[in-house]
Structure formats: structure tokens, C-alpha cells
Design a protein around this nucleic acid. Structure first.
Length: 457
RNA sequence: GUGAUUGUAGCUCAGUUGGUUAGAGCGCCAGAUUGUGGCUCUGGAGGUCGAGGGUUCGAAUCCCUUCAAUCACCCCA
């Protein structure tokens, strides 16, 4: 016997979880559609070469590779080390995110698409990460991107989209915004543009480890004292727009990139809707880094205000994503929703609406098989009316049948046995209140339909 | 890739310095009630104590190895 088990970091979803997840997908999808985004889908697997090198060195390690079919031994023998071996034996890989496959899609379909192209995509992605809280090896992303436009109104739109979705889900979140050009200007002001990556990965940790740790990490990596002083100043920048913009410009000595970034972020904040106070707040966070190498402008990240959890979504602007696939000068900006984490947050806050539970509305009990033809006919009629209906299949005791209805949360059970038939009625039992009434056979459809429309008490 | 913690019934967990036949609650099945769920009562089924090895007269308990899960780091949604 094989012990039943799942691969690490993957999950089954029971009926209730699927209903709740669908609620999230539907909410997000409705918002995407309301904002005029169009759906696309791409394959679960891509050519390995499409994905390699797009997510940084760490990212490459986390790509799930698909072993080639056929006789792999001769190929394997040509490899000189395990890295080469891996690339020889796998030509395909599972997609790591939705953005790179989207870039490939845009290049391959560039002549058919209408630009600026707004697309959304809701599909699973796979990462060979070690799983932990809020982190899975198979999870869904819901992406919305706008490509073919440099306008900052796109950023304004996408932030509005975040606000709309989380407002509909009744989750309190904080949207943080930063700009890659500030980080670039910081690196250059420190003396070396190549320091961008070590600086950003170091300061990204500030929330967790604090300023001291960040500084000691930089010192260990051999950063000069002046650079560390500058970075400390950067970390201590105020975050209200009125103070932040002059301060960052002064700190970075009016570096042209820093000036660009100030203009961009100022523009975006100015155009965000101001008169809806219940919406998620947007705040400048100079320490927000985000790993993915392709971002060049604005970067965004969403966090719950209510539950400690990794980010619920993120995104940013990339000015040359399709350039990697031979189509230069297609700027874009996009955001992603992490449904699996949003699910965990909603679940821990019991924030799913009650309507996600119910499925079957009524159960017809199997009491007297002589009457089953008639029961099946009623069932057919109710189903045609869109009322979700079941018949208990086994000739079990009534209490077992009722227990089934109770456990499944079915609100109504209907008894039609020989006694009822003799009186030309059915027994209509309301499981929620424990009441039962008799309804004449001639009025069954009418009375029950009315019952189901009554508001729940 | 690195580190820590935990593995006992379907689930959540007890289990004494190593000592007889490993327990509880919940759940499941049956009965009390041959046509009425939830509540109650009675009874029953269900265990390779994660796996393998070692120490011992004797191991769920001590030691070693291994596997798995969880959490944290790195990184990320």
C-alpha cells in the first residue's frame, strides 16, 4: 500500500475552501473587468530558456524544471557539472510567475494586440521554495498589467484597482509605494551603481531586523563609512509627501534619477482618489525593495493591516520587459494579487460572507420507492427553476437521511411517503428551525419557491 | 540551501525516574426511537506509538540513523 500524500507545499481544497476561493477569484475578476482588462491564459510550462535569468540568480534556483522524456542517459553523460546537467536534461519548466510569460505573449502576438494592452491573468504558478506559513510551492497569482504606455495614469489606475478589490473584500490593507530610481540614485550617490542590488536587499530587511542589523550587514560586505552614513540617512527619511520629497532630493543631492522619481510619485499621489476615506491608504516607503530584477520605476506592495503575513500583492513598472524577447520600447506596469495569502488572511479574520457556504437547497428523502418516480419529477422541475436539489439515494432510516441534510447545511428536507401521499401532501421540514408543515401536492412548487425566497431568519 | 521544533486512534492531545493488556475528549458505527436531524444515555469498532537500528530482563519513554510535517532565515505572492 502506498501512503497517500501530497508533494511538499501543495494542497487539496475541500468543497468549502473551493467556494471561498471562488469568491475571491470572482471578486478580483469582476474588478479586473470593471477596469477594462482582458483575460488571457498561457501554458503551465514554458521553455526553460524563456524563464532563466529573469528572476535573478536566486530565482533561477527556484524554477521547477521538467525532465525531458526519452533516453536521457547519453545526454547526461555529456554534462561536466550538475548545473550543466540540469540544463541538458530539462528543456521545459513550470512557470514561475505570470509576468514573464505575459511578456513572451505580447512579443508573439504584437501584431494582433491593441495597445495600450490591458490584460489580466488568473492562473497557478510554481516555485521550488521551501514552504512555510503563507508560502506554497503551487499558488495562484492574479495579475493585471498595462503595456504599451508610459503614462503614470496607469499607476493611478492600478492602485485604484488594489483599493477597489480590498475594499470589496472588506480587508484593511496598507499600500506602500517606492521608486526604483530613488534606490538607483542612492547607489550612485554612494559611489557605485552596481551596489544597487546589495543595498536594496539589505534595506528591504529593515522592518524585520532594524537599522543596526542593516548597517552591520553592509559593513560586512565592505561598504565605506560614507556610504553607510548616506544609507542611514536614506532609511530615516520622513514618509509624508510634504516632507519626504524635499528631504530625499537633498539627501541624494538632486541626482537626476531621484528628481524623476519625485515627479513620478508626486504625480501618482496627486491623482489618487482623495474623497473615499475607507479605502486603503497609500504611503511612501523608501525601504521597499522587491526582488524581481525587471522593475525600473514605481514599485508597489500591499500588506494586511490586521494580520502578520507576507505581502498580499505587489507590482511595479518595467520599462523594457519585452526587450528580452526582441521587442524593445514596450513599457509596462502591473500588479499581482496573492490569492492564497489573501485567503489565509480572510480565513483567520472570519471575513468570508455566509453566502459562500450553501450549496444544496433541498433534500428529498427516500421513504417509499413506489413514489420515487413522482419525486424525481418534482426534483427535475425544481432544478429547472435553478433550485439546487438532491434526493437521498439509499433506503436508509429517516434519521440518517435528516442527519445528512443537517451536516450538509441543507435548509429544507421534504418527506413524501405513503402517509403523505394518502393525504395528498408533502412534509416540508425546515432544518434551521426544526419546524415542519404540510403542503398540498398541488401547491408544492409554488409554496416551496416562496419559502426559498424568504429572507433567512 | 541553512537552522530549530514536533511526530501516539480519523482529529486534538495525555502517557510518571524505562515496568503488566497504551488512554481521554471530539468524531465514526450501532442501539435507546421498526417515519423525523441537532440534545442526552448505553454499547462498539478503530493503534506497526512516523520508519529502521541499538541499549536493556523489559522501550511510546534512553541512544543513533532516517523520513515527514511545521516554523524561522534566504527570497518571495
Amino acid at each position: 500500500m502506498i501512503k497517500p500524500a501530497l508533494p511538499k507545499g501543495t494542497r487539496d481544497f475541500a468543497p468549502e475552501a473551493v467556494r471561498k476561493r471562488r469568491y475571491l477569484f470572482q471578486t478580483i475578476q469582476q474588478c479586473f473587468e470593471a477596469f477594462g482588462f482582458e483575460p488571457i491564459e498561457t501554458p503551465a510550462m514554458e521553455n526553460l530558456s524563456t524563464l532563466l535569468g529573469k528572476y535573478g540568480e536566486e530565482g533561477d534556483k527556484l524554477i521547477f524544471r521538467i525532465l525531458n522524456n526519452g533516453d536521457i542517459l547519453p545526454l547526461a553523460q555529456r554534462a561536466r557539472d550538475s548545473r550543466e546537467l540540469a540544463n541538458l536534461l530539462a528543456e521545459k519548466a513550470l512557470r514561475y510567475d505570470l509576468t514573464i510569460p505575459f511578456a513572451r505573449f505580447v512579443v508573439m502576438n504584437q501584431h494582433q494586440l491593441v495597445f495600450p494592452f490591458r490584460r489580466y491573468q488568473i492562473q497557478p504558478v510554481w516555485r521550488a521554495d521551501r514552504p512555510q506559513k503563507g508560502r506554497y510551492r503551487e499558488f495562484y497569482q492574479c495579475d493585471a498589467d498595462i503595456v504599451g504606455s508610459r503614462s503614470l495614469f496607469n499607476e493611478v489606475e492600478l492602485i485604484g484597482l488594489y483599493q477597489e478589490v480590498f475594499s470589496r473584500l472588506q480587508l484593511r490593507v496598507r499600500i506602500r509605494i517606492n521608486h526604483r530610481k530613488w534606490l538607483l540614485a542612492l547607489a550612485e550617490t554612494c559611489g557605485n551603481a552596481a551596489w544597487l542590488t546589495p543595498i536594496t536587499t539589505a534595506i528591504d530587511k529593515i522592518d524585520k531586523v532594524g537599522v543596526e542589523q542593516v548597517e552591520s550587514e553592509l559593513r560586512e560586505k565592505g561598504f565605506p563609512t560614507e556610504a553607510i552614513t548616506l544609507i542611514r540617512g536614506y532609511l530615516e527619511l520622513p514618509n509624508t509627501p510634504a516632507e519626504a520629497f524635499p528631504a530625499v532630493l537633498q539627501l541624494l543631492r538632486h541626482h537626476p534619477a531621484a528628481t524623476d522619481a519625485v515627479q513620478d510619485v508626486e504625480f501618482i499621489l496627486k491623482h489618487l482618489s482623495q474623497n473615499e476615506p475607507e479605502r486603503a491608504t497609500v504611503q511612501i516607503d523608501f525601504t521597499l525593495a522587491r526582488g524581481l530584477d525587471y522593475y525600473t520605476g514605481t514599485i508597489l506592495e500591499v500588506n494586511s493591516e490586521e494580520v502578520a503575513m507576507g505581502s498580499l500583492g505587489g507590482g511595479g513598472r518595467y520599462d523594457n520587459l519585452t526587450g528580452l524577447f526582441g521587442l524593445p520600447d514596450v513599457p509596462g506596469v502591473g500588479i499581482s494579487f496573492g490569492v492564497d495569502r489573501i485567503f489565509d488572511v480572510m480565513e483567520s479574520l472570519h471575513r468570508f460572507p455566509a453566502t459562500t457556504h450553501r450549496s444544496t437547497q433541498m433534500l428529498w428523502l427516500r421513504i417509499d420507492d413506489m413514489l420515487m418516480p413522482q419525486i424525481l419529477e418534482y426534483v427535475r422541475q425544481f432544478r429547472n427553476q435553478g433550485i439546487s436539489t438532491e434526493v437521498y439515494p439509499d433506503a436508509a432510516k429517516i434519521d440518517k437521511q435528516l442527519k445528512y441534510a443537517d451536516r450538509k447545511g441543507i435548509p429544507f428536507a421534504i418527506l413524501l411517503g405513503s402517509r403523505e401521499y394518502a393525504a395528498q401532501v408533502i412534509g416540508l421540514k425546515d432544518l434551521r428551525h426544526g419546524t415542519q408543515e404540510q403542503v398540498p401536492l398541488s401547491q408544492v412548487m409554488q409554496v416551496i419557491r416562496q419559502k426559498l425566497q424568504e429572507p433567512e431568519r
